[in-house]
Structure formats: C-alpha cells, structure tokens
Amino acid sequence: MNLFLETLIGGLLAGTMYSLVAIGFVLIYKASGVFNFAQGSMLLFAALTFVTLLEKGLPFAAALAVTIAILILGAILIERTVLRPLANRSPMTLFMATLGLSYVIEGAAQGLMGAQVHALDLGIEDVPIFIGDVLISQFDLVAAATAVTLALVLALLFNNTRIGISLRAVADDTRAALSIGINLNRIWQIVWAVAGIVGLVAGMLWGARQGIQFSLSLVVLKALPVLIIGGFTSIGGAIAGGLIVGAAENLAETYVGPYIGGGITPWFPYFLAIAFLYIRPAGLFGERALERV
C-alpha cells in the first residue's frame, strides 16, 4: 500500500511540473489560436538567461528581474516581427512561424550563452521527507506548490481583471474584440510575456532538477499529451492533465514496467493521449464551441 501511495504522490507532484509547462501553451493558444511550438525554446531561453546572470554574480532577485524584463522585451519583439505581419493568416501559417521561431530562439540562446550544462541551485534541498510513513521528495512538494500558486494567480487574473477578460474576449472573437476597441497587439504582447514568465518558472524548476541545458526545450514533448488530455484552452485542464500524466506514468512504470522491461515513462503519456482522443477529442476541460441548440 505504501509503495502505491508513494508512487501515486510522487507521480502527481511530478505532474504539476508538466502542468506548468502546459500552462504556457494554453495561454498562447487561447490568445492567438496557435500551438506555440516555440514554448520549449522560450523556456530554455528564460532559464538559461537566468542562470547565466546568476553565474555573472547577480543576486537572485536581480537576476530574476532582469530575466523578466528581457522576456517582456522579447514578447514585444516577437509580436512586432512575427505575429503582427502574419495576423489573419491561417493557423497553419502561424504554426510554421512558431516552428521557425523556436529555432531562432534556441540558436540565439546557445549563441549568446553557450551550450554547456549549467547547474542551478534554488536552495531547495532535495531530501525525501516522511509524511506519516510515506516518503515524499521535498523538492517535488515545493515545485507542486509553485505550480498551484501560479495557476491560481493566473486564474484570478483571467476572471477578474480588465486584461484577463479582454484576453478571453480575444480568444472567443477577434473581430468583435477589435470592434469595441480592444488593442489586439497589446494583448498578444502581454500574453507572450506571461507565457515567457511561466516558462521561466517551469524552466527554473526543471533546470534545478536536471541541469539547464539544450534538452530542456524537449519538455515540450511532455506537454503535448498533457494538453491533449486536459484540453488546449483551459488552465484547469492543463493542471488536471499534468496530474493525470504524472500519476499514470509513474504507476505504469512501477506496476507494468517490470513485465515489459521498463522504460515506459517516455511513451506511456502518448498512449494515454491517444486513448483520450478516442473518448474526448476536446480534452477533459477543452472548450467546444458553445452554441445553443
């Protein structure tokens, strides 16, 4: 029983990290209707900038502030040079643009800051602690708490602020939003900046665990099944999807793995995602077109 609980809780906690990555996708998908392939590169770029600034001797808070400022500038630059000229093109065109963007960002990150692996110490001790008689990673707990806090803050922002409601309005109907004076370009800039900051937080947590390096951008591949399961348009869905994927892959590895030689973790989420595509193509919390019949 303890093994089961430990596996489940460990999986759920790891899942919140997947959620964190997925939230970045959801934000941009809602605002610009595009699957942002560059999210992984943005995450890498953000984390790499932060760790480089730390290594240059900046204190933690200053490095964080400078990184966020750079991300905001980057978002404005992307909106001006990529999104604005391609506005009103097909989603496929935009998707290809983000594909290109991901290589530009990745290239820029490595060109400016090198390709070596950076260690990042966030000062969270990665010693397991006992809760009752269940062993839990302390680092996972902190990561999960961060993810949940971030999601709550974003949810509050979306439901109660002018910018949040504008963003949801743009997601629903771009033309109508324009017609009542909502500045689409400003909304895109804000959303890409927020997605960058979410990427930074995710990148810091992932990076602290496995080192900040090129392969960090591949966490995108973890987010995809999370999005398919949770839905592309809901932050709550991203959280739920992350938890499901985290728990399922951990349980599968522990209980099914031994029978088929292990190594289930990389592909099991996709297996799950395909199963969900059969049952609920819009994902658990995905928005289908809301229409009265």
Binding site: R168, A169, D172, D173, R175, A177, I180, E287, L290
Partner: peptide, 14 residues
Amino acid sequence: HVFGHLTVEENLRT
C-alpha cells in the same frame, strides 16, 4: 459576434 464563453455581464464590461 458575442463572446460566447463570457457571461452576458462580462460581454457588456468589455
């Protein structure tokens, strides 16, 4: 072209 997922009042607020 109302914002379908927003409530009536949120639509007005926009």
